[in-house]
Nucleic acid binder design. Sequence first.
DNA 1: GCCCTGTCATACCCGGCGGGTATCACCGCG
DNA 2: CGCGGTGATACCCGCCGGGTATGACAGGGC
Lengths: 287, 287
Amino acid sequence: MDTLETRELRYFVAVAEELHFGRAAERLGMAQPPLSRAIQQLERRLRVCLLERNRRGVRLTGAGEVLLQEARAALDAAAAAVRRTRRAGGADGPGGPRGRLVLAVKAAASHELLRKLLDAYAAEPDSAEIEVLPCGIREQEELLRDGRADVALMHTPWNSLAGFDSEALAAEGQVAVLPAGHPLAARETLSLAEVRDIPGLPLARWPTRGSYVPGPGPEIHNQTQLAQLIALGRTVAVVPESARSWLWAEHAAVPVPDAPPVVTHLAWPAHSRSLTLAGLVRTAARL
Amino acid sequence: MDTLETRELRYFVAVAEELHFGRAAERLGMAQPPLSRAIQQLERRLRVCLLERNRRGVRLTGAGEVLLQEARAALDAAAAAVRRTRRAGGADGPGGPRGRLVLAVKAAASHELLRKLLDAYAAEPDSAEIEVLPCGIREQEELLRDGRADVALMHTPWNSLAGFDSEALAAEGQVAVLPAGHPLAARETLSLAEVRDIPGLPLARWPTRGSYVPGPGPEIHNQTQLAQLIALGRTVAVVPESARSWLWAEHAAVPVPDAPPVVTHLAWPAHSRSLTLAGLVRTAARL
DNA sequence: GCCCTGTCATACCCGGCGGGTATCACCGCG
DNA sequence: CGCGGTGATACCCGCCGGGTATGACAGGGC
């Protein structure tokens, strides 16, 4: 009556994402009619209209939008339950697992800090093994929510810490990265407004939440690409100071004091009780 | 294979909490044998031992403890999905519900602030109705997680903001509340150490996470009881300044500068996308 | 206007599995 | 040694989740 099975949530998410019963059924590996019936039962049990069936395709109602959000969160939680329980299944003591930790990091971000953290933790008595899982910056939050990772190095303001516990580890300013020969490369500092308005050198754009904001600059997919485009004099970017470590000889970095500071956090699921994780956090706090 | 139904999670939580298959089955409204079988299937599918069956009763393994935590979180998420979807089912527009908001507050806490917030929000154009749901301080987090409430007034350091988004609204110092006639009531300020060591006047204890830390002072269950015990000269307490509003004539309040400041936050589930909630937060941020 | 196509809904059947009852195996205890 | 109380096993049944076949209906091309 007032409880949904994860099966029903999976079905609804598939339909809500595909907006097409046939494709959703195919994705779920089942036939279309039982899927239609399941969604109807769901709507009847919730006494809520979730989908608008126009003869041509399907649209979400407001309640449907809400359920899509909530169902994804609930499915993530269920998947996390499986993953974390399986991982805890090996060696553990009462009160929490003592196994490996999976640490999700945006590839190449905060490299120095990460090395220091791993070294310091490895030197601790009875420290656990840490698996470093490189991934995209948007992926980190998903990995943490659905249990594929236990802890992540996140960077505000790009990552959202919503839904996680966290410990701030370091803050740094940002620098504008220009082609070495550019006239502005000799400046002591630049303002954000100046960087945005360099004639003939549009600001690079990277995806936020999967899509790009419109603008003149090139769309960046990875750091190597960005480095190359800057070296070629096609774009300019504002990045954290620690990015100096991967700059090329053809690059110049100029501090941008009015850019928002970037804070590196260690973040983990809010309700985590793992003793191993607690050890890592303690180490990190002492850095 | 790698997905659990909420039914299985419910079953496991019941067994893990009762530590007794018979009682758990009764609580679930079913017979014991199918429950035993379901838990065995769960363990086989996860390939993890969750329970130690000693001839006399049952104990949780480490993995079982982990699953208990995770399962509770996942069930809360599923319950929240139902509640929020049902509430969104009424009047709504695209992008989020425009219905009532349920605001969970610890009874009588931050009364002035709450009144100001509600008044300011009601004065906004197209503000929604706000239902104030008074509850205990530990209950707030649960209500928010399982969807019975949309937003809460929380107080650090007593509440944990882990897992929620929040906006700090106000900070205040703490005061010691003594019987009016007590010699120390005339002091300008007191230190925490002094309050703790008043001869014949032990510090009141309130429950943290459902249980009381041991100590000489009386165990407090509600504010009226606390007020009475202080007035009778049986105990002393350290409370936020704003509590002056409910003090009696027989009470005296003395500032305690070295007590941790109490910050009142507006908190809501991390992934919330409600437009109505966004309006309330905007109003709160302007207070 | 016609039919064809693509959509979701309906009708009906079947097998698996979730749940019930009866019973067992085992241990502690008086 | 029997008794009570635990969880596990054996067996049966009915329901419901899923499949196939088909219907209803709207839009588009000719």
